[in-house]
Lab assay of single mutants.
Amino acid sequence: KTVHVNGVQYDFDNPEQAERFAKEMAKKAGLQIQFHGDQIKIE
């Protein structure tokens, strides 16, 4: 899974790890999470 945070890309082999990371980042920055198939976007 790939997580995009403000244009920066983070790759994870483990989907659960990717989602946990995305939730942490979104919570910290007060941003929205969008799921697009294999990609998670935080903007």
Rank of each mutant, 00 (worst) to 15 (best):
K1T: 13
K1F: 15
K1C: 15
T2G: 02
T2E: 01
T2W: 04
T2A: 03
T2H: 10
V3Q: 02
V3W: 04
V3I: 06
V3E: 01
V3G: 01
V3Y: 05
V3R: 02
H4P: 01
H4G: 02
H4Q: 07
V5T: 01
V5A: 02
V5Y: 14
V5I: 12
V5G: 01
V5L: 10
V5M: 11
V5Q: 01
N6W: 12
N6R: 05
N6C: 15
N6P: 01
N6Q: 05
G7Y: 02
G7S: 04
G7Q: 02
G7A: 02
V8C: 15
V8D: 02
V8F: 07
V8M: 08
Q9H: 06
Q9K: 12
Q9C: 15
Q9V: 13
Q9L: 10
Q9F: 06
Y10F: 09
Y10T: 00
Y10N: 00
Y10V: 02
Y10K: 00
D11A: 12
D11E: 11
D11I: 14
D11T: 14
D11S: 13
F12L: 07
F12T: 01
F12N: 00
F12P: 00
F12R: 00
F12E: 01
F12H: 00
D13N: 05
D13L: 06
D13I: 07
D13W: 02
N14W: 03
N14L: 07
N14A: 03
N14D: 13
N14Q: 03
P15F: 13
P15L: 11
P15Q: 11
E16K: 05
E16Y: 10
E16H: 06
Q17V: 05
Q17W: 04
Q17E: 14
Q17R: 02
Q17D: 13
A18I: 02
A18Q: 01
A18M: 03
E19V: 14
E19W: 15
E19D: 07
E19L: 15
E19M: 15
E19C: 15
E19Y: 15
R20F: 10
R20K: 11
F21L: 01
F21I: 01
F21D: 00
F21V: 00
F21K: 00
F21R: 00
F21S: 00
A22K: 04
A22H: 01
A22Q: 02
A22T: 02
A22P: 00
A22M: 09
A22N: 01
K23Q: 12
K23S: 07
K23V: 09
K23P: 00
E24M: 13
E24G: 02
E24C: 15
E24N: 06
E24A: 12
E24S: 08
E24Y: 14
M25F: 09
M25Y: 13
M25W: 12
M25L: 11
M25C: 15
M25P: 00
A26N: 04
A26W: 04
A26M: 07
A26D: 02
A26L: 08
K27H: 11
K27T: 12
K27F: 13
K28A: 12
K28R: 11
K28C: 15
K28E: 08
A29H: 15
A29L: 15
G30C: 15
L31F: 11
L31K: 03
Q32W: 04
Q32D: 07
Q32S: 12
Q32C: 15
Q32N: 10
Q32A: 10
I33D: 03
I33F: 05
I33W: 04
I33H: 03
I33P: 04
Q34D: 07
Q34M: 12
Q34N: 10
Q34E: 10
Q34F: 13
F35Y: 13
F35L: 09
F35Q: 06
F35R: 09
F35N: 05
F35A: 06
F35G: 05
H36F: 13
H36A: 11
H36R: 11
H36I: 13
G37A: 06
G37N: 08
G37D: 08
G37V: 05
G37W: 07
D38H: 08
D38E: 09
D38V: 08
Q39P: 07
Q39A: 11
Q39C: 15
Q39F: 12
Q39Y: 12
Q39R: 08
Q39D: 10
I40N: 05
I40D: 05
I40E: 06
I40F: 06
I40H: 04
I40P: 05
K41L: 14
K41Y: 15
K41M: 13
K41V: 14
K41G: 08
K41N: 09
K41H: 14
I42G: 06
I42Y: 06
I42W: 05
E43W: 14
E43G: 10
E43V: 13
E43T: 11
